[in-house]
Design a protein around this nucleic acid. Structure first.
Lengths: 212, 212
DNA sequence: TATAGATTTGTAGAATTTTTAACAATATTG
DNA sequence: CAATATTGTTAAAAATTCTACAAATCTATA
């Protein structure tokens, strides 16, 4: 096994962005790229790019730069897109439906296996080929199927409750869209998408500039 | 005008979270809170909380702590929830619809004024009281109405194009859900919600832990 | 093919930013 | 009024970013 020195959060959060830009370069038929070129494109410093990538190994070559395709693949490996990830979505409202309908996830190994809701009008339906079950069937489903990640698109209190159930069933990865923090043991890994928080940051900037 | 020393991004990104927790405390009828109590609740250090809040003024009192309600209001002011913010949503798909349907935004001063789409089946409809117009009418609408923030829930290329148009019409605040960075002058302020990026971070953690 | 000059990485160390610790100053409480 | 609680703030520690450059490779040319 390779060395497993701790990668900083700041670095991890930038990886998907590198991945994104590299994909664009591939689509444009670009074969090689230097950290300098990439930095201009991404509005980052070349030094940061080199240092970030070097956390995972020397992907570049002096005098040449980086091979776009192979760097893309390496970052993909690091991000785990080569493994299949099985997801369930709790909540089949607009947000949940938006998730299962977005094409981009499936091309990176994410497979939506089921949705769950308490609304009887939704249960039994299929959204983009993903079946909606009643929340009552959640426990049964999770015991019988491989589930890696649970996406939570339900109100805060429900999200806290359901995430605890899912944790007790062994699920450790949560993609949380509820407007609250989850209350889980520390080995659970939660990625929050707090839309109001992000909108408030925008509001902060907007109000602030008006003061001048 | 008060001093306007630069507030760090890290601090700003924590403000909405303070705001969220304080609201919960208000709902629970809690009148005062110390940085120590809050830190336990929020899993942060008390020191960080005190220092963050102190960027904006001495809201606390030695020997007492912080008055929950007044701190909540102060942070609300800082975040600009007292001003009305007029939003438009570009893209009336599931994601756009999820935004205009979510109750939480309107209670903080955010008003969705219109949605725009190119799908004729959607145009003319109303979603949660918000009318969907054809994208052709965007320019006209923006010239005749106050628009503070544009939410973009359309594919990447379209988002880049439309955001440039909106910028040229004077809009400076963008809430971008497209899977790309926008290409705008530096006085535009963009908050990105890159769902795939956030899912990939989760995938990174999941893959990483499997290696052990 | 050999070679000189240009390019570009990987990395050590400096600078900056962010977080945490510690405590004097001050208010609260009984 | 003494004991306790808790802030605001200074200073230290830790984390992150940037600068600078030696080492390695590439490219063009004779």
């Amino acid at each position: 096994m390779a060395q497993q020195h701790q990668i900083s959060k700041a670095v991890i959060s930038r990886l998907p962005r590198y991945y994104r830009y590299l994909r664009v370069l591939i689509e444009e038929g670009v074969e090689r790229v230097s950290s300098e070129e990439l930095s201009r494109l991404m509005k980052a410093t070349a030094s940061q790019i080199r240092q970030d990538l070097n956390n995972f190994g020397g992907f570049g070559q002096q005098g040449y730069g980086y091979n776009v395709k192979s760097l893309y693949n390496e970052i993909g490996k690091i991000l785990g897109v080569e493994q299949a990830h099985d997801l369930i979505v709790i909540g089949a409202g607009n947000l949940g439906r938006a998730l299962v309908r977005y094409k981009g996830f499936s091309t990176h190994g994410f497979k939506f296996r089921a949705m769950f809701d308490i609304d009887d009008n939704l249960c039994g339906k299929s959204i983009n080929g993903v079946k909606v079950y009643h929340l009552n069937g959640l426990l049964n489903f999770v015991m019988k199927n491989k589930v890696d990640i649970a996406a939570l698109t339900i109100p805060s209190e429900d999200a806290i409750k359901v995430s605890k159930q899912l944790y007790s069933l062994g699920i450790r990865y949560f993609w949380n869209f509820a407007h609250t923090d989850l209350e889980l043991p520390s080995d659970a890994i939660v990625k929050n998408v707090h839309l109001l928080d992000s909108l408030l940051e925008l509001s902060f900037e907007a109000s602030r500039s008006k003061e001048h």
